[in-house]
């Protein structure tokens, strides 16, 4: 696949053309309500696209696993019909850490039992990723080795100052990139891109983790009864905000919604969160993970140990820092917890 250079003007023209096709196009833009922040939303005008954004309020996972989606349509007589969302769409501006989160979800939704609802949407998506141009206030992607990405996208854009380097990684991406007015990327352009990558791999690091991400799983091995879980969870509201903004959280609830005719309805899945009280509650009122500290610990073990064991050791925290900003009592920062455990276990070693 080819590596091209686009001037800033030809990028805008290209996006104009993409928008003018009938496909659904989503892109990063100013948040409609929280105007000092950014969001992925339907892109109506190229002028709205902000590839210089720092981080979006919600990750792009909402296009692959929507907050609410119908799995099965039913009627009360017992007829069931699988729902299927086959609309093709394009997402512009996914950062490397979010791309890596999507790559992890791809693996998890295909593993063991193939989830056709997620995968159909994933296969219908064309992803134009872009390297981070502005570091957000809580990003720690460098620590998590997620500041750059090598797969998953169809096209990767890198802002090198005087234009963008665009690399198509798939046939789908190549076909789309062919529509842009491009020139061959020069050696200097490739070098400039390399410099962006090297800078991001070092400097997207507002909360440095004091170990390799691959060592977290082993660290947690001995930390199950550490006092940090109780201490942090004391002020936890069990609001689940950390779950809702997380690009690697994919737990869901399933419930039935009746239609107005009271004869038919939809079985829907909605985002759920392991921090929420009731996540493990069964009738009649028995809750398996009733304590706040147990739920708080579960989230960080899931990110650092349980999910990694299913996806070849990759840590399921991509360092986007969204949970840090979303957590009102300011306890969600995974790095703070992992570093604290590191300090204590190295103190034990001494």
């Amino acid at each position: 696949m080819s590596v091209k250079k686009l001037s800033k003007e030809s990028l805008l023209n290209w996006v104009d053309e993409i928008i003018s096709t009938k496909k659904k196009v989503y892109g990063v833009q100013k948040h409609k309500d929280k105007t000092d922040r950014f969001e992925f939303a339907p892109l109506d005008s190229t002028a709205d696209l902000r590839l210089d954004y720092d981080v979006t309020v919600l990750p792009p996972k909402k296009y692959f696993q929507p907050p609410t989606e119908t799995l099965v349509a039913f009627d009360l007589k017992g007829g069931y019909k699988a729902a299927c969302d086959t609309e093709k769409f394009i997402v512009i501006g996914i950062h490397p850490y979010d791309m890596i989160a999507i790559n992890q979800m791809d693996e998890l939704f295909q593993k063991d039992n193939y989830d056709s609802h997620y995968m159909t949407r994933r296969n219908n998506a064309t992803i134009i990723a872009c390297d981070v141009a502005t570091a957000s206030k809580d990003i720690f992607a460098s620590s998590m080795k997620t500041a750059t990405v090598k797969k998953g996208y169809d096209i990767l854009l890198t802002d090198i100052g005087n234009g963008y380097v665009a690399e198509a990684a798939t046939k789908k991406g190549q076909l789309l990139l062919d529509k842009a007015k491009t020139e061959k990327a020069s050696d200097a352009d490739i070098k400039a891109r390399q410099a962006v990558w090297e800078n991001n791999e070092k400097n997207l690091n507002k909360h440095p983790l004091n170990c390799q991400p691959s060592e977290v799983s082993e660290l947690l091995e001995k930390a199950y009864n550490h006092p940090v879980w109780e201490e942090k969870a004391k002020t936890c509201f069990s609001c689940g905000s950390c779950n809702q903004v997380c690009p690697t959280c994919y737990c869901f609830n399933v419930h039935d919604d009746m239609n107005w005719d009271l004869k038919s309805g939809d079985r829907k899945r909605t985002w759920d969160g392991c921090l929420l009280d009731g996540f493990t509650k069964v009738a009649p009122d028995h809750e398996f993970r009733a304590k706040k500290s147990d739920r708080f610990r579960h989230r960080l073990y899931r990110k650092g140990k349980y999910v990694p064991s299913k996806i070849g050791g990759q840590i399921a925290c991509v360092g986007c820092g969204r949970c840090i900003g979303a957590c009102l009592p300011d306890i969600a920062n995974p790095v703070k917890v992992y570093n604290r455990l590191l300090e204590d276990t190295s103190a034990v070693k001494k």
Binding site: D112, Y250, F252, R269
Partner: peptide
């Protein structure tokens, strides 16, 4: 063992016991 379950196929996360899913 029993736990709360929604999907039964190892995705929804409700029945998780540490590193195990009761359903799968």
């Amino acid at each position: 063992l029993e736990r709360k379950m929604k999907c039964g196929v190892g995705k929804c996360g409700h029945c998780q016991i540490n590193n195990f899913y009761v359903c799968v």
